[in-house]
Amino acid sequence: MDERRAHPGASWWSAVLAVLWKDLLLESRTREIVTPIVVFSLLVIVIFSFVLDPNPRMVEAVAPGALWVAFTFAGMLGLNRTFALEKERGGMEGLLLSPVGRDALYAGKMLGAFLFMLLVEAIMLPAFSVVFNLPLLEPGLWLTIGLATFGFATVGAAFSAMAVNTRAREILLPVLFFPVAAPVIIAAAEATRAIYAGDAFADYGNWIGLIAAFDVIFAVVAAATFEFIVSE
């Protein structure tokens, strides 16, 4: 906290919001994250509809897994862009020169990645529900998606900042991301399965709790260690 007050630059929240606003404005201009990923994700859903048996029992068994495979692949593409766009004109250095806490830079970038993934998922979910004839108006499902996506963004933004400086960065990001995010993927798929089966919240609440715990832990750990990722 003292560290934050010591900065003569923007306050913590105004720096977070400035970074977030900048990313949203850029995306509204270029649409280079959301548009291609939406098209890609719709393709994934269509391909699932080809390869999976449309028999309702089969759909119930595999749909939750398919949904989360599609979400994680889409998220991966978005995360790859998160810091790649900063590299183009040395923007990352522009950010690093700013007199704000590194945790604020992390929070701004992470929230941007979170919102982009959420936007893509908001378009994918109705398409998925239509193709597989599954319920869409499920607050439990929305909660699961929101929390799991936040969890993806917490570790994903940190790994994206690393991967962008490495060789083979497009492949390294998923290699780093999937093992760490595995519990969120398992929990989200299981919660989704329970929701599609019509279970009560009490039956899948522990999965939601696990995802929420992951979110809190890694938001804090990633924000605290971000300085070591970005500073030479």
Partner: peptide, 21 residues
């Protein structure tokens, strides 16, 4: 080092998820 820390914190969470699973 960052991955070494994140990864190790992740282990009990992975274990919980896998155990319930």
């Amino acid at each position: 080092a960052v991955l070494g820390i994140i990864g190790f914190i992740d282990v009990p969470i992975v274990y919980m998820a896998a155990r319930w699973w």
